[in-house]
Amino acid sequence: MVHSFKGMVPELGLEAKRFQQSNLGAPPFAPTVAQLIRNAIEKAPVLLNATASYLKPRLVTFCYYAKVELVPPSPTEIPRAIEILRKIITSARTGSFKNLTVKEALLNSLIATKVCVWFYVGEIIGKGGIVGYNV
Rank of each mutant, 00 (worst) to 15 (best):
L107I: 11
L47Q: 06
E83Y: 10
K17Q: 14
S22D: 02
N39P: 06
G95E: 01
I124Q: 03
L48S: 14
I124E: 02
V33W: 12
T101W: 04
S74T: 07
T51M: 13
E123S: 05
K6A: 05
I41S: 03
K43C: 11
V131F: 04
R86V: 00
I124L: 02
R58W: 06
I130Y: 08
N134I: 14
Y133W: 13
F19T: 00
V71L: 05
L12W: 02
L106K: 04
G128W: 00
I88P: 00
P72Y: 07
I88N: 02
L36F: 05
P73E: 00
G132D: 00
V9R: 06
L100M: 12
E104L: 03
I37T: 12
V71M: 04
I41Y: 11
N134V: 15
G7A: 07
Y65G: 01
R86D: 03
A81Y: 02
L106M: 10
A105M: 15
F62W: 08
N99T: 12
P73Y: 00
Q20K: 14
G132V: 00
Q35D: 14
F5Q: 06
P79M: 00
S53A: 15
P45Q: 02
Y64G: 09
Y65R: 08
K17R: 14
A105D: 10
T101I: 03
V68H: 13
N39V: 04
N23P: 06
P75E: 07
E42G: 01
E123M: 12
Y64L: 11
L55A: 13
L70D: 10
G25Y: 06
I111E: 11
L12Q: 09
K17I: 14
N49L: 11
K43P: 06
R58T: 04
L48R: 07
F119R: 11
I130W: 10
A52C: 05
G13W: 04
Y133G: 01
I124A: 15
V71Q: 07
Q20I: 04
L55D: 09
I125Y: 02
L110T: 04
N134S: 15
V117I: 13
V68N: 09
L100H: 07
P27N: 10
S22H: 03
T94V: 01
V60L: 03
C116S: 07
F97I: 06
F97A: 11
E11Y: 08
T51E: 13
R86G: 08
G126R: 13
A26E: 09
H3E: 08
A50C: 08
F29L: 07
V46K: 11
T32I: 01
C63D: 15
T94S: 04
L100A: 05
T61M: 14
L12H: 05
K114I: 05
I130V: 14
M1C: 04
N134M: 15
I124W: 01
K103D: 05
C116G: 11
V33H: 14
S22C: 12
